[in-house]
């Protein structure tokens, strides 16, 4: 099953690359807004572009982050029941979810392509402020972001299908440790029993 591993490495790598690249936009947003404040209060000349630029950076950043979040299993899910299932049961649920998800994402992608294409066709611009920037670049981000999430969704689906069928494969992500907690604060967490740490399946055993 080496091709599976190669595919998963490539797909995870793509989402990882995009996530790392766009993470710089956080500094971009901070920079743009700090410039606006400096210009407004210290130079007494508010910029025309700062608000809309930061909004576009925000919108593009968050949309594109979706695939990175999925690759790191960061999309919130309720684990009350799912978490109590055996690994194979979880995989069967995931097959249902990510195959339906694939259908839905394909529809979303189609809509998003049309949405962006129409904006290009009329060379749409924004009319909120005097700046009037073009809107088609930010609208083009939507199909790209949806496409990236769709690709990562397929990788999740493949993982779930193989696990559900009981097929052995080498998942490159298995070796990673994921936590919402700052790793620097937790030098010892790798020794701790992580599954127990988030185990909510036995709330009544007190």
């Amino acid at each position: 099953m080496a091709w599976v591993t190669r595919y998963l490495v490539a797909q995870d790598g793509l989402s990882e690359f995009v996530g790392r690249a766009i993470s710089w936009l956080t500094l971009g947003m901070i920079g743009v807004l700090v410039i606006e404040i400096v210009f407004r209060y210290f130079l007494d000349s508010p910029t025309l572009w700062a608000h809309e630029t930061s909004t576009m950076l925000y919108g593009g950043f968050c949309m594109l982050a979706g695939a990175y979040t999925l690759r790191h299993r960061g999309h919130v899910r309720s684990e009350v029941i799912w978490g109590a299932l055996p690994k194979r049961g979880q995989a069967i649920c995931d097959v249902v979810i990510f195959s339906t998800g694939a259908v839905v994402l394909v529809m979303f992608l189609k809509l998003a392509i049309g949405f962006a294409a129409e904006s290009w066709a009329v060379r749409e611009y924004s009319n909120k402020s005097m700046w009037q920037p073009p809107l088609y670049p930010i609208k083009t981000v939507i199909p790209i972001a949806v496409g990236l999430v769709l690709l990562q969704n397929m990788a999740e689906l493949l993982r779930a299908v193989l696990t559900a069928l009981g097929i052995e494969y080498d998942d490159p992500r298995e070796r990673e440790f994921e936590s919402d907690i700052d790793p620097e604060l937790l030098p010892t967490i790798l020794d701790a029993d992580v599954t127990e740490a988030v185990d909510t399946s036995k709330p009544n055993d007190r």
Binding site: W24, T26, G66, T69, L70, H75
Partner: peptide
């Protein structure tokens, strides 16, 4: 550098979740 990377990537991961929800 590590701190900055950690903060930027964690923000990315959280915002990807929040935006899609």
């Amino acid at each position: 550098w590590d701190t900055l990377r950690y903060v930027m990537l964690s923000t990315t991961k959280l915002m990807g979740m929040l935006m899609w929800i």
